[in-house]
Every structure is written in C-alpha cells, then in structure tokens.
Amino acid sequence: MNSSKTRLEYLFNCYNDKTATKEEEKELFQLLNEATDKELSEILEERWKTTQADSSIFTSETSDKILSNILNRHKAGEGEAFKKRKYWGPAKLLAAAAVLIFLCFGLYFSLPLFTVSEQSLAENEMPNDADPGTSKATLTLSNGKTIVLNAAGKGVLIDDGNIKVNQSDEGQVVYEVVKDKAVPGTAVNTLVTPPGGQYQIVLPDGSRVWLNAASSLKFPNAFTGGARVVELSGEAYFEVAKNKGMPFKVRSKLGEVEVLGTHFNMMSYDDETSMKTTLLEGAVRVKNDRDARVLKPGEQAILNQGGMVKVTDDVDPNGEIAWKNGLFQFNDSDIKLVMRQVARWYDLNVTYEGEIPSKRLTGKIPRDAKASQLLSMLEYSGLKFRIQGKNIIVIN
C-alpha cells in the first residue's frame, strides 16, 4: 500500500471520529482530488463497510446496493448493480467520494463543507431547482391583523398594555402576559407556517413550540380556566411548561394529547393517514372518542381516523424530531412518505411517472440542502428524479 493511500485512509478515520483538524480536513479533500480511481474505489468500499458495521444504519442488502450505486451510478442500471465494477473517470468518482462522505458523516458537518463535490456534481445537477425552507410564518391576531414573520425581524410586535409580543434575536415569537391583566382566553391567535417555512414560539405560559412546514397553531392571548388548550394542524415539537393545576392540551382533527409538563412531537397533517405523537420526556395521554392511552418516554402513539390508539416503542424519538434539528431522517420510510416531507419543505408538488417505486429509504440529509442536492443524494439509492417548474417528478 503506497503512502498516499495510507494517509488518505488515516484522514478518513479522523474525519469519521470527528478528530480531524482544519488542516487535516483540507488535506483530505486535496488527496481526494489527487487519488487514483482504483485507490478511491477501494477506500470508499472499505469505509462504507466499516461505517455500516459500526452503525447498522442499513441492512446488508441495502448497504451493498447503495455502495454499488455509488460506484456504478453512470455505468450500470439497477439490474446490473452487482456486476463486476468498472472504475469511473476522476470527476465522477470524486463526486461519489463526496457523496459517500456526505452520507456517512452528514451529522458531523454542515452543508458548506459539501462544496468539495459541487464541481463534480454539476454534471448531474437538474436544470430546475428549489431552495430549502427558511424561518418564516404569519401571525394572525384575534382582531384579524396579520403580521409577517421572518428570521430577520426582531423587536416589539405588539404592546397593548395587556399582552406584549416580541420577536427575539433568535427569530422566535415570545408572548408575555402583563401580570393581573390577562385578557379572556377567547381571544385566539393563529401562527401559520407556509410550505417551505418553520418557526418557533414561546406561548403565554412559557411553553416553547417549534412549528414545522405547512402547519398552524391556534392559541389564546392568555391561558385562563382549568386547562391550557391549543389546536394543531401539521407538525410541532412541544416543550410544555409545568403547571399541575392547569393541564396542557393539544387538539387536532383526529384526537387530543394531554400533558402536565413534558417534551413531545405531534404530527397531524391532513395529507397523512394518521396522527403520531412521540414522547421524549414526561408523560402524555393520547385520546379520541373511542380510546385513550398514556405514553412513557420513548413510545409513540399512532391514531387513525375513527380507530383505536396504537402504542409502540419501535421508534427513534430523536429521529422524529430530526426536522427541528435541521435534518431529514428516514428510517425504513416508503417513498411516498419521504416525498411528502420533501414537498412541504421545498414548497413543491410531487408527481409520479410510471408506477410508484416500492423502495424504502433510510438515512440522514441536512435540510439546508437545495432540492437538487437532496434528490441527488436519494438517487444513489437507485431512484430517479427531475424538477420541472414547481413539480418534482419521480421516475420509475
């Protein structure tokens, strides 16, 4: 084994362990440019196998298919994935190396470090594209006034003597109730995120809510009476302020979640067939007209229209809130579920050309990637896409 290949393997390991210095990262990408096709292929294959053995992200069959697609993407179709490999030219193999690093180590660096592949991936870029979502929303007050929110704005939005609404430097809306001047709970406000937007809000009781794309949250100016009640359409992550004397309730089209003080994620989009509530901390009760179940941390409740509440612990709670932390995370997800998430975040429609693929996807991709970059990542699993106007077309 020559010294440059040994050094490249060493740098790969440092990068994987998050111990690489800035100088070593720079050297790694320089060696990727200088390495021969054969050296890259051998190192990529070894690193991929090691990563999968350590993390068990994919099944062995899926892992082999993805690796083969990376090494053969422009040389063989899916049916030829396990034929003898032919090495690519330097530009395309460098692109494969960058994608492999992105897939294996995506959690360890932000997208700007992905620039090593931009020139090489340019050959495969789609003629149309869409930027990722941003922090944006509209706040409709109880008097009908609408305020456009974005991350750039800050300062006092409302101060009527009873309620003060600020937008913080971090870009979140903060409601403050002036002590002893709470207005009736019938004064309802609505926070709405469009497709391609998300936002954070601190409710009048101090509870914190992260609202995902294409979602809405209705809440009063001040919580009064025996319960704190909000209404959700879409998806949100809640960190509820504790108040044993006033339970916190989240109502949706399919059911209700009741808590005293806890952290949980709730997904109830109109285009999904079920409401899912995932508990990270504390305890919640999920109920509808027919059934009610109490969750423990690490459990998820699935509620279908008119059905019973199903509880499972076969769930990754951190995966369920990956969106809040800037990631798409797919865990054996079918393509239709994946594309619904993609459509909401990029404000695009999805159509299928031919039969809907039966593939299931597992992996993590930063949500600050452009649509074409994300779709390029997904294509390494054997899928094909194109962007046409406001549509993503899945080709089979």
Rank of each mutant, 00 (worst) to 15 (best):
G245W: 01
V311E: 03
D314C: 14
D270A: 11
T312A: 10
D270C: 05
G261L: 02
G255R: 04
R285M: 15
R285A: 14
L280A: 00
M275G: 04
N288A: 12
L279F: 08
E256M: 02
M266A: 08
I302G: 01
G282T: 10
M308H: 13
K310S: 11
E272C: 09
D314F: 13
V309T: 08
T278M: 02
P297K: 07
L279V: 03
K249R: 13
L295Y: 10
F248I: 08
M308Y: 12
R251L: 12
R251M: 11
T262G: 01
K244I: 09
R290V: 15
G245H: 11
Y269R: 10
D289H: 13
K296I: 14
D314N: 15
S252D: 07
T312W: 02
S274H: 10
S252G: 11
M275Y: 10
M275N: 06
R251N: 12
L280K: 02
T273S: 13
P297M: 09
G282C: 09
V259W: 05
T312I: 13
A301P: 08
G255E: 00
K276I: 05
K287E: 15
T273K: 13
G282Q: 08
D270W: 11
A301H: 02
E256I: 01
T312S: 14
L303G: 03
V294F: 07
K244T: 12
L254C: 09
T262H: 07
Q305N: 14
D270V: 01
V286Y: 00
G261T: 05
D271R: 09
N243T: 07
R251S: 11
T273I: 12
V286A: 11
Q305A: 14
D289T: 15
K249V: 07
F264D: 04
L303C: 10
E281H: 01
E256G: 08
S274N: 14
V257R: 04
L279G: 08
R293A: 05
K296P: 10
V257A: 12
G298C: 08
D316R: 00
K242M: 04
K296G: 04
N318R: 08
E258T: 01
E281W: 04
R293F: 03
V311T: 06
D289I: 12
R251K: 15
L279S: 00
D270I: 06
V294A: 13
R293V: 13
L303Q: 03
N318K: 08
F264G: 01
Y269S: 00
M308C: 09
V259N: 00
N318M: 14
G298D: 15
K310W: 06
V284N: 09
V315D: 03
L260N: 00
D313Y: 06
N288P: 05
E272D: 15
L254W: 01
K244E: 13
K249T: 07
H263P: 03
D271E: 13
E256T: 04
M275K: 09
L260S: 08
V315E: 07
V286W: 01
S268D: 00
V257E: 00
